[in-house]
Design a protein around this nucleic acid. Sequence first.
DNA 1: TTGTAGGCGTTATCAG
DNA 2: CTGATAACGCCTACAA
Lengths: 326, 326
Amino acid sequence: MARQVGVSAITVSRALRSPEKVSAALRERIRLAVAELGYIPDAAARALASGRTDVIGVLIPSVTNNVFADVLSGIYAGIEDAPFDVQLGNTRYSGLQEESLLRVFLSQKPAGLIVTGIDQSEEARALLSTAQCPIVQIMETDDRPIDMMIGFSHYAAAGAATAHLVERGYRKLGFLGARMDPRTQRRFRGFRDTAEAAGVFSKTRVITTPAPSTVTLGSRLFADLVERAPDIDGVFCNNDDLALGVLFEAQRRRISIPAELGLCGFNDLEMMATAEPSVTSVRTFRHEMGQRAVVMLIEAIQADLARSPQVVDLGYEVKARGSTAR
Amino acid sequence: MARQVGVSAITVSRALRSPEKVSAALRERIRLAVAELGYIPDAAARALASGRTDVIGVLIPSVTNNVFADVLSGIYAGIEDAPFDVQLGNTRYSGLQEESLLRVFLSQKPAGLIVTGIDQSEEARALLSTAQCPIVQIMETDDRPIDMMIGFSHYAAAGAATAHLVERGYRKLGFLGARMDPRTQRRFRGFRDTAEAAGVFSKTRVITTPAPSTVTLGSRLFADLVERAPDIDGVFCNNDDLALGVLFEAQRRRISIPAELGLCGFNDLEMMATAEPSVTSVRTFRHEMGQRAVVMLIEAIQADLARSPQVVDLGYEVKARGSTAR
DNA sequence: TTGTAGGCGTTATCAG
DNA sequence: CTGATAACGCCTACAA
């Protein structure tokens, strides 16, 4: 340690953390020594001695998914220059992984935690409830928050998209779904209930798979759908990757969008507005969600509120575009 | 701590880390107590006492970029059940951010480090060289590895793509580039040198911008390019997002691909093969890169090799598809 | 198989 | 403004 340098000990600690409490002379000598020795304080010792860390743990189910990439960039934007480090955990849509990561995170006594969704296992909820830090659940809303919560209703959003297709006169609606995690299932229910209410639902026009979403998969599912239900005139996709696959497959089959087929995606990825034709989608506020989640978290941390229930509904927006313009 | 429970102390530590060294009876009692108290060992204390951690730090320049998402999923695959946690840092293409994150990571005395690229600042290289752990640089290859390195030559890959366009008879080649970080610039040089050698290079057909790549930006850049050089008959894009934007814009302008325009992207995202027409791209082995990077790292960690220079070149592959099929 | 002693590098607390 | 002392909770080494 830099104690050799001058004739100090804890002063180094002070010089580093609150320079104003140390005389200019010492401060300078210490600064030089630190630079020379390449001294970097030991995070573990600091955490142990102070009993706190500046880690914000973030648990998301996928790193390959654009949706979470946007949330993440919002989180980084929200952190800005706040003195916190985000530590990312990838649960890979697995409850077991989530529990295991939770244990890892909790062992670090994080300053705060951001977790995805409302479908934690009992075990995970138990772990979370023992956490000595504020927690934000993101991506969804419901009335059973562990602590804070920010998101939107996937059920309502999917319902609105479906209503839009109906309103545009599409009657033989199909649903394409991949991955089928709990969020996706809520979207499906939103579709089904709205379609049923409008009298346009048919089980034969629903195709789902547990496989992860890709554009290629969208093309394949749509090909299946067309064979199974040739009279289909509208498709609501679980997400935009699938929708893009449908767009390409429809082009290949010379099925005209929007004249013969209405197409609606979900998430409103950037590319949907640029596609030809542009694709209707449900816009969600992912960046804002990530950003506000950290901001809420940091406020709770700084206010020393270990638990301060609150639910923020960010809503959604059906962006009507060329693919449903008839 | 759980010492109250039985009549033990360090035995708890052993029961948790190497259960076989503790009698079945005690092990069981401890297991119960742990479950009941929700006891989770303190990571900081453990790190401080043992002088080591099982953290693998990963520094990438972007979380919103599919390219790094794939690398990451490879990393997670490579970690599998190995007893390491990955900690992610997002440098956001900033050298300063990278240095700062490096300091944070090094303060945790990580077991290993994965960093992106070969363009670290002097300061960053200095920090890295003081690290007491193995390091893997990913995404590129060169002859100046800090420790281990796995990637490919962006220069050569872009050259090969360009050669492919030339071979297919395209002569008025253009280049579209966004972000223009060092890797992108090497790709540009690969394009330029190859195009010049073939006598088909023209500066007026090159458009670049520091803005980040999006599909929409691809459409815009292509629109500019067509106005500036109406005789253009081939485009090499910096990446697939731009290429997809070109595809859509060409459709809007009724420019036929591949008859009137040859199009080649870079990265070979999954969607390129499904697009209509399918889009030629340069495939890179991102998942494998991430996976092998951790595997190399873990081997070095376990062999206790603090430094074991080696460079792995994963190569690339020009995937010729419909968009250059004439 | 279990326990004891000592210390990891930092910070809180209280003196000087 | 600076320093001494005592933890923080766990692990290594050695002993019983």
